[in-house]
Design a protein around this nucleic acid. Structure first.
Lengths: 204, 204
DNA sequence: CGATTTAAAGACCGCTTGGTCTATATATCA
DNA sequence: TGATATATAGACCAAGCGGTCTTTAAATCG
């Protein structure tokens, strides 16, 4: 057993690019074009890496895609944890959550789409690694929304007969549907009014 | 000016395959795999056509895809026109409409997905011909649902404060969201209960 | 310094892509 | 029959694909 540090210091030229920044740039490309339509040169241009560096760092296109997808999912869950923070008013949180989706699914942002939904439609059925991620994301989202609705119910803010669990499933389908319809770039005003109308059916 | 029929009879060997059947088979392939992931050999296998025949009949892959998409859309609209027939009870029609989506978005059918939603996510942003078709489909669907809701309102079957136009937008987003979440193959029981819970918020 | 590690550039690989074209057989017409 | 039109099979094409490898420069260490 050595007395030295178990972390052996690298001896040569240190890595000079930010791996996470590269994942983020790659995510942007997959997001805009989808998995199959994204070619290696697109990723090289976006990450500013050489072929060799990209393959050394990520293995292959599919692995890099999974990293990008994981990051997209982590970002989405982080956002939800802020919007639906249990320390805040649950109804306000749900309003912020829906407003965020309205913002991201209207106009130019809407037309850009959603990496997660696009991936679900393109790959979830055929790629088990992707399928598991998509399924666990929807479950995680549903849980968070259901929790917020439960807190709202406890505070007697829910309309009669509204069950947190099924209302959460409704909201999840609704926001994912917003992402789909958002590809036709609807106006913010219309989408916001639609989201408001839905939430109004749930709250007292 | 000739006295003969303006439809000139073909003089050689007549076409020996059913063009519409070929479109339908091609539609099945695009439906299962998406546009970019579908290669020519896949289409040749499915349509049982030779390369030459396929290109003579449809021009190129993209044109064949548009034919397939148009057929998918026509089928969907025809189905809706039956379910939401103005001569029937509007609430029953809406129930049938939602039940149809539940059926197509659960289990194995759910995992197969939806050609229209997959196309919206994969191509609508970059392909104007596709984008127009997607947008007009959503609009047509929304109109039909709104009409049914209007009839329900006239018959005093809607809950207080439910507006047909915004409720229709909610339902469109909801069913398209079902298609997305359906890629994780949820159970029919859960999805049906979710759809029922949503409609219950709208009807008296 | 010399050893080591990494980066970029780009040649290179086998394979697939969408698409064209030729050769040949077949089915219809006048 | 002969002319016409269509079918299939498959060779063929340039371009692009994902992925590997070599070369050379640069950055760190002892």
């Amino acid at each position: 057993m050595s007395h030295r540090t178990p972390v052996q210091l690298p001896r040569g030229r240190p890595r000079s690019f930010d791996v996470e920044a590269a994942v983020e740039r790659a995510m942007g490309v997959f997001w805009s074009r989808g998995y199959h339509a994204t070619a290696l040169p697109d990723l090289l241009r976006a990450t500013k890496l050489s072929r060799g560096s990209l393959y050394a760092a990520f293995g292959d296109k599919h692995s890099l895609f999974l990293r990008a997808l994981d990051r997209y999912i982590a970002d989405a869950l982080t956002r939800m944890d802020i919007e639906l923070d249990p320390r805040g008013e649950p109804v306000d949180g749900l309003r912020a959550y829906l407003a965020g989706y309205v913002d991201r699914t209207t106009g130019a942002k809407g037309r850009r789409g959603c990496l997660l939904v696009a991936t679900a439609m393109e790959l979830a059925g055929q790629d088990a690694e992707v399928g598991r991620r998509i399924a666990s994301f929807f479950k995680a989202m549903e849980t968070r929304v259901a929790d917020a609705l439960s807190r709202a119910k406890t505070a007697d803010k829910l309309a009669d007969g509204v069950e947190p669990s099924s209302a959460a499933r409704i909201l999840v389908c609704f926001v994912e549907g917003l992402r789909v319809v958002g590809k036709t770039a609807p106006t913010r005003i219309t989408s916001q009014a639609t989201a408001d109308a839905l939430l109004d059916r749930f709250i007292r």
